[in-house]
Design a protein around this nucleic acid. Structure first.
Lengths: 120, 120
DNA sequence: CTGGATCCAGCAAGATACTG
DNA sequence: CAGTATCTTGCTGGATCCAG
């Protein structure tokens, strides 16, 4: 798995991207900022993701020490994911992600793609 | 190309991820925060990227109105990319990205992967 | 010589079914 | 409910070719 060993980065942001740059990781982490969540809860929160991808991305985040995976040995099975201390330190990034998204959606709605853009 | 028309998002961050979530987009944008850059400069700044991917990601960013592409009709050819106004508004996200990356690298160096993680 | 497009191979992501 | 295995699909990467 080679959990991103010490590489050399051209700019620091590359390190961040290596850790949270997976296709679904930022989204997963955003949801986890609202508190610990079970696998099924995450799946519900992200209708587009498949079980495979969810498990895979969660494993990688766990390997990088961003999230903590807790297994309850019981029936039915119960697995809870939550941000680790390092993961919590990402809140700044994740908050910005959310904030900009809101602004972008608002801006798009009000201005409604004014200039050109012919497609469709 | 269907430049991300108004979809419905479960959380605002999804919008951000749709726009800057491409494999190289955040990295490209990070470099552009330091000022306008030519295609060749971006390529040099990102040794891992191919011309094709660079062009493709730049086009998508342009279609989304994040960056501005300026072509100088001259020989040799010269194409310059820079952040648009909307792109500039991403500086908060991009700065956080860089900052966290620095902290992460530092943390890893000082603590040096204390717990487990055998590889290499 | 720079920037970009095309073609094909390889790998990661999507979908579904199955196990504990 | 959580995770694995398998197959299919589509994107990424590399080389090559084209336009200015």
């Amino acid at each position: 798995m080679e959990a991103r060993s010490k590489r050399t980065y051209n700019i620091p942001a590359e390190a961040t991207i290596e850790v949270i740059g997976g296709k679904w990781k930022m989204l997963i982490l955003c949801h986890l900022t609202y508190g610990p969540k079970r696998t099924s809860e995450l799946k519900k929160a992200m209708p587009g993701i498949t079980q495979k991808m969810l498990t895979q991305q969660l494993r990688e985040l766990e390997d990088d020490g961003i999230i903590i995976r807790t297994v309850y040995n019981q029936v039915p099975p119960k697995v809870v994911y939550e941000l680790s201390e390092i993961g919590e330190s990402l809140s700044g990034v994740l908050d910005q992600l959310c904030e900009w998204g809101e602004a972008f959606i608002q801006g798009r709605l009000s201005r409604g793609r004014k200039e050109g853009s012919i497609r469709e």
